[in-house]
Each structure stands twice: as C-alpha cells, then as structure tokens.
Nucleic acid binder design. Structure first.
Lengths: 336, 336
DNA sequence: TTGTAAGCGTTATCAG
DNA sequence: CTGATAACGCTTACAA
C-alpha cells in the first residue's frame, strides 16, 4: 500500500519478547481468558502502542471471514433525505466498528445491480439498500447471501425486512388538517406508482378524504417519477386542466416540490399561488419561501439506527422484524 | 461472512481440471503472457462464469498489499456541495475499480482524526480530504503514509497537493459585476477566517473593490463559521448596525445564505430586502426565491475527477501538481 | 502461562 | 504451456 513499512504482529511479538500467539491474544483482549501474565500483557500493549501497531484488516478478514464493512446503496446523495441517512449511518457504523461503503444507484436498476455486485465482491458483511425497483426476486436473492435490510422504501408484498417512515399516517394527518380548513381541492403529485413511497403516501392522502366522507378527484392525482422536471410538468398539466391553480398542492417529494415551486415562480411569481403548499421531506431553505410550506420530516437518525440494529441482529443470527419509524410534521403555516 | 458457501479459485481450478495457478493466471487476464492454451482459457473462464466466481477481496489485498479502496472525508453530507462531490467521486471510483469509503468529520478536528485513523487501519490506498483545519503537520504526517489530496479546501502556505475551485476569480467577477451596477455597499458574511475558502472568497471580494479604486467598508465584513445560525446572526448584526439592509449581500456559503434569507423572511417577508443577493454554492430551491440570487456554482464532477486522477497518479509513483477547477456563475438576475 | 503450526484465498516464482 | 510451492498477516486449536 505504501513505501512506509508496516509493522506486523510478529514484529510486535518480537519486540515484546513473546510469540505472536501471545501478542495476538493480548491485542484482542483475550488476555484474561488465556490467563496471560499481567506483566506480559503490559509489555505487549506498550510496545504495540509505542509503534502505533494496526492489524492488517485484510489478513484479519481473510481469517475471520468477516470484512467489518457494510454497504449502503442510495439513489442519490443530492437528495437531502438520503444524504442525511448516509451521514447518520456512517457515524453509527464507525462507532459500531464497521466501515461503511456508500454507493449511489442513480435510481437505475442496472446501476444498482452493478453497485451491489461490487459490494458483494468486496465481501461486505451486510447491506442496507434503498431499492429503486420492486424486483423482489433480485433482492431476495441477495438477502440469501448476506444480511439485507431495505431502508426508506420497501418492496410491496414481500417479506424482505425493511425500515421505513410511517408515511401513510403522517400524510394522512397533513392532508386531514388541511381539509379541516375547508379546503375542497388538493392536487397530488407523485412518483413511480410501483415504488412503496408512492403507494404509502397516496394511501395516506386517500384515507384523509375518506375519513371526511369524500373522495379525492382522480383527475387531480398525477404520477410520474421523482425528478424535478416531473414536478414542474405535473403542475403545468394541472394548471392547464383547471385553468387556474388548485386550492392546495401536495408534492410527494421535495424534488417534485422544487418543480412545483419553479412553475409558480416562473408563472406569476407566486402571486396567485395556492395558499396551501404541502410536501414530503423537508429542507431548511423552505423556511424562506414566499408561502409557508408544511412538510413531513423523516427521522433519518432513527432510520439509520434501526437499520443498523437489524443488520447487527442478522449477523448475530437473530430473527428480525421490519420497523416503521415515526416521522413528524413541520407546520410552517400553523393552522393546526 | 455467510453460510452461503463461497467458491474459491481452487474449486474453479478443480472443476476446470487445471491447477490453481493456471486458473489464477487466466482469471487475471495473464493468459496471453503465460501462453496458456486457448482451450484451457475458455474452459476456465466458462467454469468461473457459470459459478459466478468472485475472488476474495481480502485474500487478494493481503497478497497484493493494495486494498482497492479509497477514503473520502467530508465535513457534512448535508452540505449539497459535498454530497455532490461524494456522489461524483463514488461513481468515478467504482469505474476505476476502487470502492470508496465516505466518512464525515462534522467539521471537527477530533472527529476528523478518528475517522482518518480508522480509514488508515482499513488500509485505504489513498485519501481525499476536505480538511476542517489548517493543521499542516497533521495532514503532512498522513500524506507520508499514503497518497493524500486535499479537496475543496487547501491548507494555506503548505505544499500539500489540493484540488479546489477558482473561488477568488469567480467571487471577483460576481462582485465586480454587481459594483458595475452602481452598488456602493455590499455586506460580506464569511466563515472561519483560517480556512482557505474564507481566505480565497474574501480575496476575490476585496479585489473587486480595489479594481474600481474603492475599498470595501471593513465594518460590513463579518466572519464567524459556516453554520446557518451564524448567517442569521451576522445579517441581524449588520441590520442593527446600519438601521436598514445594506444595498447588497454576499454570503460565502449557502448555509450562511440560508441564515440570511431566514432573517429577511422573518423580518419583513423580504419587503425591504436588498435587491442584490449573492452567494457561494448553489441549490435548485434558490430558483424559487422571492428575489433572484446570483451564485457561484462549483463543478463537483471536475473536482472529483481531478482528485481521483491525482490519487491514481500518486499510486503510480508520479509527481502531481495541485489544480484549480473552474467554477461558474449562475446569473439568476441577469444584469451582466 | 506460552509457543507451534495450520490454515484463510490469492498471486508470483520457479521448475518441469 | 502448466503445476507445485511459498508467501501475505492474522487467529486459533492443540501442545508443551
């Protein structure tokens, strides 16, 4: 790896005047278990510390058949929610003695497959994945090779373990409160209908209407993908259809919201923009928008913690359950 | 790593009816070099493909003394510029046959040190680092152990190789164009004065004034750190000092801008906000703000590519030069 | 209480 | 053209 000469455990053992077995045991905290003389322990530890001994990760994992690494696959790090997930997870992994590989799938199945294959070749001990398809067979195949937990998105109708936000409930609350203001028209802009976030978020939306004995107008429910341009396009289509803005707008992701806001800004600088703007996922810049925007905020720290806990449990051979992590609502327009 | 039985090169060799040496040579593309019979080559390759043979990364790196991994240390992934850097770099690394460890320092030196120590223990082959201090001795020490490139921030007055944006020039242009509009008062909000971005951005700011034979009013130049609250606080302080908004505002980072915008929104909903809002680093949501905001946009793909190229050069034993990567300006208010 | 030796899966050197 | 064999650095039975 470098011209800098690394010390091996043999060097340490020699310097301490013991065999490499003894050194190994001491350095792995097995001194007590093997009843090694306190003086020996001290000597070995001192030598190791003096020389900044660092065991070779590759040798160790070759022998132990554990790499001490985990993989995280997210669609894009430019998505704040996923960046926060990665950030939380990385810190947690580090504290738990793992090192995290973060890779991006760009929301494309073939990239996802390639990325995962590479992680498997690196022998990661476990995999946390924000899946970009509903390909249950694929993920199931992987989950047979190593501990796998789906994060942020689940695969519908599959027993694969997942950790996701309770989106349905929070969207329900957000929409229900808005309807309670006397709003009778809310446009819904969503992403790919086959991805679980779309399903879950739409479910909350629909349920809120049902609870009031109403049904959402189907022609105001749009679905494309989660790209900004799609948000713009759906807002434009909706506007054309109505000849005006709807009373309220819900964007199922912040990227879609960006498109919606871009349309409003471009169209008339928000002059006739809807009073009620709602979205899933948050960003600090939304604090400074011309209209207050109420958003569902995911708890990325909890998503990360729950995911890692499940990977660790799987590694320990324990059975695990999926988890719904509570999100909350950021009421910027506090009408509740 | 799992109960799933991995095939080793010995298994492949047996199945193909050759020795593991031959198998190894074939699978590493050395067949021609060792003049192995075409039939043998085909047989081995077919067996390997059939059984999805994947060589053990740990065994390989134990032997070759290369881990095939690189490390990237960024302050925070929630910073879009750094997230984009990580994303670009990860893809490039993957294509170059490396796997990237992304770790966050939270902009704290002790976290940075711990994180790097862990990466070193993992024997990463090289390190790309957005340093969070000016501690030249520390980084120099690391750079003696492995290829190291500083990214996005450099260490002032140190020969450590870096890859950073040409911030000074772009800020110069941004400010010069604004002054050319007849503006005579621009507040400057910056982060820690000892970090190179602060120095470089301020330099561009000052130079733009000088070029017109003017000097920026020192009392309108503020420095704290790059946290959002600091942006808010500096804007508040500036407002109090003047009893009004300045004619124009430059925020040296988007996080500071967020604070500035939060103040303006809270204060009077942007009613009396300055006409000229300028910032370093961009975000799509800025497209939807009540005022057009002109920003310097870094080329994260280029930063990533240049950094990786330098690491690879260092690994090949070549000498490298630092690089200034061209940024550009997103003129939302096109007065140029 | 400590040491010896056998592997973990590769690659590389050397003989055939 | 191909096959033994010896490392790489570490852990862990098994001996002493």
């Amino acid at each position: 790896m470098t011209n800098y000469q690394r010390l091996t455990i043999v060097d340490i053992a020699k310097l301490a005047g013991v065999s490499k077995t003894t050194a190994s045991m001491v350095l792995n905290g097995r001194a007590a278990q093997y009843r090694i003389a306190a003086s020996t322990v001290a000597r070995v530890q001192q030598v190791a510390a003096e020389h900044h001994f660092q065991p070779s990760a590759s040798a160790r994992s070759l022998r132990s058949r554990r790499s001490g690494t985990l993989g995280l696959v997210v669609p894009e790090l430019s998505n704040l929610a996923h960046a926060l997930l990665a950030q939380s997870l990385e810190a947690l992994c580090r504290d738990a003695g793992f090192q995290l590989f973060v890779v991006c799938s760009n929301d494309q199945t073939d990239t996802e497959i390639k990325a995962v294959e590479q992680l498997l070749a690196r022998q990661v001990d476990g995999l946390m994945l924000v899946p970009c398809s509903n390909n249950a067979k694929l993920y199931t195949k992987w989950s047979k090779r190593l501990p796998l937990v789906l994060v942020d998105r689940r695969v519908i109708d599959s027993p694969l373990p997942f950790v996701v936000s309770n989106a349905t409930e929070q969207v329900f609350t957000l929409i229900a409160q808005t309807l309670a203001q006397g709003v009778t028209e809310i446009a819904y802009f969503g992403g790919q209908m086959d991805l679980s976030p779309s399903v879950d978020r739409l479910a909350g939306f629909q349920r809120a209407w049902q609870e009031r004995g109403l049904t959402a107008k189907p022609q105001l429910i749009f679905h494309r993908d989660y790209h900004q341009q799609s948000g713009y396009a759906m807002m434009a289509e909706c506007f054309t259809q109505l000849g005006r803005y709807p009373e309220a707008v819900f964007a199922a992701s912040i990227s879609l919201l960006e498109g919606v806001l871009a349309f409003m800004n471009e169209h008339d600088q928000f002059k006739t923009a809807p009073q009620y703007l709602l979205s899933f996922d948050d960003h600090r810049l939304l604090d400074c928008m011309p209209r207050p925007i109420n958003t569902v905020v995911q708890d990325s720290a909890q998503l990360a913690a729950q995911s890692l806990a499940r990977i660790i449990a799987l590694l320990a051979g324990e059975a695990i359950e999926s988890a719904w992590v509570p999100a909350h609502i950021n009421w910027r327009d506090s009408y509740c």
